[in-house]
């Protein structure tokens, strides 16, 4: 190193790790996902439904059912939105301009994953609170409503679907893959529900919301303790999807990658085991 270029090099090296840059990028990516045309429609539909809850739509029970459907199927929209954002640089040929940026591909993938959390999953959390208000708020006499763990599962399925979209974008960045995953998730869920109908506990491993009543129309019924473990199981699936996305790049130290993957696997397997009756 020459004497002249040593000064800026030291300044560059002494800069803090790019945590804020990753956070900022995550917010940007989350916002890009939410701009996907399906979301404004979903959110508008949601709040219009609330606004008319005592009017034309026929009362709180109908509203509750509709909002539940919005939350459940909005998760599947997140799969497409996250996948589109995660593949956008590649599809538009902009990757070449980003390739030499300080935020390397792995950090950009991490930011996109966090973008699902601070974007669609955060919106799902807000919508879930609205749903809880409709179901439990003043004047509500609904019997067929969700409870604590069931509400917690709703944002998690948005998060999981989005992270799966990011992982798919990193490993299989081709047109049609998100649709195939979408169909795969639906098939997995329906087959699981069928297994539960037949009394087989393996059905509890569905990547979807499980309720103590038939609130979401899947015919699923489970005990209160299972709901908690199913929530942890969904969280484990989210972590696994994020780990899969990050594993595409080999920039993080092996020990960090191993610890993260092992934790995700342990959480998922433990929770899967614990929710079985």
């Amino acid at each position: 190193m020459t004497a002249v270029d040593a000064v800026p090099a030291q300044a560059a090296a002494s800069r803090p790790r790019p945590v804020w840059a990753v956070t900022l990028l995550a917010l940007r990516e989350g916002w890009r996902m939410l701009r996907w045309p399906v979301y404004p429609l979903v959110i508008t539909f949601f709040f219009v439904t609330i606004a008319f809850e005592e009017g034309q739509l026929g009362g709180r029970a109908d509203v509750s059912h509709l909002l539940g459907l919005v939350l459940v199927y909005g998760a599947l929209a997140t799969l497409f939105a996250a996948s589109l954002v995660a593949t956008s640089a590649r599809r538009s040929g902009a990757e070449s301009q980003f390739a030499s940026a300080a935020l390397d591909p792995q950090l950009r993938t991490l930011a996109t994953g966090l973008g699902v959390l601070v974007g669609p999953a955060a919106v799902a959390a807000v919508l879930t609170l609205a749903l809880a208000y409709v179901q439990h708020g003043a004047g509500s006499q609904l019997a067929d409503v969700l409870h604590g763990w069931e509400y917690a599962q709703l944002p998690l399925i948005w998060l999981g679907a989005g992270l799966l979209g990011v992982a798919a974008a990193r490993w299989l960045p081709w047109p049609g893959v998100p649709l195939a995953l979408f169909l795969g998730l639906i098939a997995w869920t329906l087959v699981s529900a069928q297994q539960l109908d037949l009394g087989r506990a393996v059905g509890f491993l569905m990547p979807f919301v499980i309720s103590s009543r038939d609130t979401i129309g899947l015919g699923v019924e489970s005990a209160e303790g299972q709901l908690g473990w199913h929530t942890v199981y969904l969280l484990g699936l989210c972590l696994l999807a994020l780990a899969a996305a990050l594993l595409r790049h080999r920039q993080l130290p092996g020990r960090v990658v191993f610890t993260f993957c092992a934790t995700a696997l342990l959480v998922t397997i433990s929770a899967a085991w614990m929710q079985l009756p």
């Binding site: 040929g93 070449s96 300080a102």
Partner: peptide, 15 residues
């Protein structure tokens, strides 16, 4: 990379 600017041969842009 913190001190680098790069103009690639075929720059693409996010839609």
């Amino acid at each position: 990379r913190r001190r680098l600017g790069y103009f690639p041969q075929e720059p693409g842009f996010l839609r």
